[in-house]
Write a protein that binds this DNA or RNA. Sequence first.
DNA 1: GTAGGGTTAG
Length: 553
Amino acid sequence: MHIKLKALLSELTQPNQTLSSTRIFHALIIKNRLSQDPFYATKIVRFYAINNDLISARNLFDETPQRSIYLWNSIIRAYAQSHKFHDAFMLFKHLLISETRPDNYTFACVARACAERSDIKALRILHGKLVGFGLELDFICSSALVNCYSKLGLIDEASFVFRGIDKPDLVLWNAMISGYGSCGDWTEGIELFNTMLNTGMWPDGYTMVGLITGLADHSLLKVGETIHGFSVKCGLVLNDHVASVLVSLYSRCKNMESACRVFDSLIRADLISWSALIAGFSQAGDYVKALSFFRELIMNGPGPDPILLATVLSASAQLVTVGPGSEIHAYAIRHECSTEVLVSSALIDMYAKCGFLGIGVKVFENMPKRNIVSYNSVISSLGLYGRAPEAFHIFEKILEEGLKPDETTFVGLLSACCHAGLVNEGRKYFTTMKRVFRIEAKTEHYIHMVKLLGMDGQLKEAYDLIKSVKGRVDVSVWGAFLSCCNSHKNYEFLEVIAKHVLENESKDCRYSVMLSNLLAGDGRWDDVKQLRGDNGGAKGKMPGISWISDMSR
DNA sequence: GTAGGGTTAG
């Protein structure tokens, strides 16, 4: 009988085993009176955990009198992995007062739970306990600690743990390198990488991923390319994980040519790589390509998930045609994920931007569960159509629900005020945001307030508001002010505006166009000519149309 | 004990 059970067990260990096969196995174990055996109990607990049946897992744990450390670890891990951290910690506490001694895996698992719930205090206590058990030099514990400390931004503590280890293994090196990577300290990461190579340790895919993940912007693209080149040169297999990180790196930097090249080299691209590529095209503004890759994925690739659907919906919103977006909506309905918060929020926005506010509102009303993003979506959408009172009403609902409005909520509200020309309401929300909700005003908020005041002719007030900003004022705020001065033909603030716009000249030529309009309005033709002649980089980009229209005015 | 993608703000 045992042999038969062992055979069944190995069959169950296959990745595609299900909850029902676990139940059958459990029943068999009970029938053979083996359920008291911690070995089988552990296996079944793990199977239940994989199938998200924590209740059965817990029942079995409770019913097993002899609890090996494997059994304890399995049930603790089961809770931790489904983010039931409180239960995981309670069990851990029970374990500590039981006769069983926790092992390195227990500490590693609980440490990870601390990191996932951002509980620095608990992690430190755990660290102390682990030292008490004499596990501070254990590779598994210390790599878990290095990971957790760096995930919580405590890179110095991570490095302290790392330096305490005499001859780190590859996983520990990788943990420390990716710690530096994830906190953006790529110079330290590369230095450590060199040290590692000097000790004779050979990198693997994890090392490369760790090195590259922190590189996010254009200035670091070269570094990424060098690392990419290094791994190819050293004959390191560009396994799909490394390749997918590269796809994501190149996509983030909007270098879609390289992203595609690496993507094509993938033997079998998984959902994450597809998503990185599609998001890359979308962020680079190539929405059509993003959607065509999405179509290809639907036909040949893995099934999309809510995250990807939200990405492609935002891409189709940018196209301002409802066709692609509603096709995606239909797809989402067919696959029963149209009511996911992520998907619905993107749907509301897409319908509103494509001219179908009503459908967007319907989607909102049909949502079984909402979060602040969904509320923000509907507020901005209503605002976009000038339906400010309804947007205000949604805001009240947020408060009734006990949700916390965020920065974006107020961007939406202020934009609604702008679209409806409600200066006093805008002022009120701006103050409430700062005083009641302690949200600091950001560029977007200032843009809307400046527009709101400026369009109402309160140019002096708008100017005072800009001057009250602590720190750097983004050129777009000056741009908003400039456009108000233009429409009121007010030349009082011309000099100060010109100063700020010209400082940011190369960034965006729209502002110099508007500035030349203002100058022209004031009859300062020499300045206009100078602006057109002396603006270096922006020169070629400056459209001639505003110039011509101003001359003929 | 180690890896990658995300919605709202015109």
